[in-house]
């Protein structure tokens, strides 16, 4: 089928201008969400986390370090998400926070992070810049994440990865 031939090759490069735009769209959505802290999922989730922390004017900030991919290569193998620790979570206890990552597909990383926050008595509102619909495995995006600014079918290359579009 043509669709199947075409789509797995899809590789979506995002520019910094686009990332700023996506963060803007999320800010719009979160403006009335009474967010009292921001938690970024390291590494790449820290970029939108810092942006949204400023845009929403919410200073309390924490980091969750969760690894999923085995390398930074395009189409890199993925394993079960593993937590490697956190920074500053204890300061957010009892608060409603924004839990943010750069991208979600199957949602295992986000789900693992969400469980950690709930166990720490933190109420997370989840958000990502991009949903990769190719990895949803039949689920709806809204079952995985509360807010997202963009959806694609295919692998995403963010500007902070330092890969030139011509390298694809």
């Amino acid at each position: 089928m043509r669709q199947a031939e075409c789509l797995p090759r899809a590789l979506h490069h995002f520019s910094w201008a686009e990332i700023a735009g996506l963060a803007d769209l999320l800010r719009d959505r979160l403006a009335g969400a009474r967010i009292a802290g921001v938690v970024g999922i390291a590494r790449s989730g820290l970029v939108p986390a810092v942006m949204l922390s400023h845009m929403l004017d919410v200073r309390p900030f924490a980091v969750l370090d969760i690894v999923r991919t085995s390398s930074d290569a395009v189409e890199a193998e993925k394993s079960r998400p593993a937590s490697r620790g956190d920074l500053g979570l204890e300061n957010l206890r009892g608060r409603r926070v924004l839990l943010i990552d750069d991208i979600v597909g199957q949602g295992l990383t986000l789900e693992a992070a969400r469980r950690i926050l709930i166990a720490a008595d933190i109420d997370p509102v989840t958000a990502v810049l991009v949903v990769n619909r190719a990895n949803l495995a039949g689920r709806e995006a809204c079952d995985i994440v509360d807010h997202w600014a963009c959806e694609v079918h295919g692998w995403v290359v963010f500007p902070w990865e330092g890969k030139d579009p011509g390298d694809a």
Binding site: L7, E18, G21, L22, L25, D28, A149, V152, H153
Partner: peptide
């Protein structure tokens, strides 16, 4: 499926509201 779909969930007015949004975005980015 081949596109990057930017989702705009805020209520938007079909009477020039979409134009205003698109023009503003293009000017900024």
């Amino acid at each position: 499926r081949a596109a990057k779909l930017f989702r705009v969930e805020r209520a938007i007015d079909p009477d020039l509201g979409v134009t205003r949004f698109l023009s503003g975005w293009q000017r900024r980015t």
